[in-house]
């Protein structure tokens, strides 16, 4: 409904769409880019594009899925600009495993209590950063954003069956990584 109103030029409706979906979009692209400024640029660009093109949004997917598709494409574009040898979507990112595990342990070395949750989040982010991009995307979109396999397949550009396999591998890899965090 908001998308229809925004397509009719309603700026308030578009603002509501941005507020409703912006946090999830940011959460997703920042797990693809690992850099706050890049993630901010990415979301900004996606929202500009959304406003420019919302009249052509046909409603064959949800607005959220539409934004996430654009977010993934934009994130890949930014990543390629930053790193010319950016790995293809199915391959492992160029991150040293030992560095990440050491980082996870370091994050745990602080005082117990109110920082524990922040450390848990950091450990999960570190585990996610070890995954190939498609597995990371599938895991975040299912476990965090609760998208269906069909919606995830639209975002990642594959089939629901492939999504199921990617998710299973991602779950196993993250569980293994999190065991390193003591």
């Amino acid at each position: 409904m908001l998308a229809r109103q925004a397509a009719l030029g309603d700026k308030t409706a578009f603002s509501q769409l941005v507020s409703r979906h912006g946090a999830a979009l940011y959460r997703y692209v920042s797990r693809l880019l690992h850099d706050t400024h890049d993630a901010q640029d990415c979301v900004q660009e996606v929202m500009l594009s959304a406003w420019r093109n919302i009249a052509s949004f046909r409603g064959s997917s949800s607005v959220r899925t539409w934004l996430l598709v654009m977010g993934r494409h934009e994130a890949q574009k930014i990543a390629r600009q930053r790193q010319p040898h950016f790995p293809q979507s199915g391959s492992r990112p160029a991150i040293d495993f030992d560095d990440v595990v050491a980082d996870m342990r370091n994050r745990h070395s602080g005082p117990e209590g109110d920082t524990l949750e922040a450390e848990l989040l950091a450990a999960l982010d570190a585990s996610l950063s070890l995954l190939p991009e498609r597995q990371r995307s599938v895991w975040v979109l299912r476990e965090i954003e609760h998208l269906s396999y069909t919606e995830i397949a639209t975002v990642v550009g594959t089939t629901p069956t492939a999504v199921r396999g990617l998710l299973q591998r991602a779950r196993t890899a993250i569980a293994t990584s999190m065991e390193e965090w003591r």
Binding site: A23, Y26, R27, S30, A39, Q40, L121, A123, L124, I144
Partner: peptide
């Protein structure tokens, strides 16, 4: 950690 990430709104 998954629940925390789900509830988390990035400062960015």
């Amino acid at each position: 950690a998954t629940v925390l990430l789900r509830q988390h709104t990035d400062i960015g």
